[in-house]
């Protein structure tokens, strides 16, 4: 006996109730449960759909789908970082390396001025404010997407929540970094100038990719990463 369309929809609902929020993972688990229910029916045809579903779900153990969800999140986070890495590398290849080099030289020059601390701190303040503002806008877009499609994708959530928010606090950590090393001296040494020039160039590129590039390319990235996307 095969499951009906309505029963498949009920299985989606069932996974949602058991804390599987993302459509990509729901789809895989729904197919698994459906296969198992059909197999159970072959051996015990008298069982109802709910009874067979309950037997199948118990096989996932006491924590239900929780282990599967958390491991999936880890795996997807790895993929998210891999995507970021691909975009970062573009900035170290031709032609973008020219902009990277110019940025590096600008930051290096700033570090050589007497106002280095003030300028770098101002950049960090602007970057922090922009990150929070953009983070808010991206969250809003994510909510609208969910309303429109009714489906949540794990990678989409990572893109619009900027790696689950881990980037939002990064500029603030840089404040401490500057304060710790430069309480007394105002002029940066050669090594610190090079280090800061590198860090600031890197953080600007990273934030540009995370806050601007990835959200704009979200649709394309989802299509590349989810082959089920074409069935929507």
């Amino acid at each position: 006996m095969k499951l009906t369309k309505e029963q498949i929809q009920q299985l989606y609902e069932f996974t949602r109730k058991h804390y599987v929020e993302h459509y990509d993972l729901q789809t895989e688990l729904v197919d698994h449960l459906a296969n198992d229910i059909e197999q159970i029916w072959k051996e015990k045809p008298n069982l109802t759909f709910e009874q067979a579903r309950s037997i199948s779900f118990k096989k996932f153990g006491v924590f239900g789908f929780m282990d599967v969800v958390s491991e999936r999140q880890k795996a997807m986070s790895k993929r998210y970082w891999k995507i970021i890495k691909v975009f970062i590398l573009q900035w170290f290849g031709i032609p973008k390396i020219i902009i990277t080099a110019l940025m590096f030289l600008s930051f290096y020059s700033i570090c050589k001025t007497a106002f280095a601390n003030y300028i770098l701190l101002s950049i960090l303040i602007i970057l922090s404010l922009y990150t929070f503002y953009k983070g808010y806008l991206l969250q809003k877009t994510l909510k609208n997407n969910l309303k429109k499609n009714g489906k949540k994708w794990m990678l989409e959530e990572m893109i619009f929540r900027t790696g689950m928010g881990s980037f939002l606090l990064l500029p603030i950590n840089f404040f401490n970094f500057i304060n710790i090393f430069h309480k007394e001296s105002q002029i940066y040494t050669e090594w610190f100038s090079l280090l800061y020039a590198f860090l600031f160039t890197f953080i600007i590129i990273l934030f540009y990719i995370v806050l601007e590039v990835l959200p704009k390319k979200a649709e394309k990235l989802l299509m590349e990463n989810y082959s089920e996307y074409i069935y929507l």
Partner: peptide, 11 residues
Amino acid sequence: TEGALYPALHK
């Protein structure tokens, strides 16, 4: 077990 299979596949 189902709880071990999918994490392994996703990894």
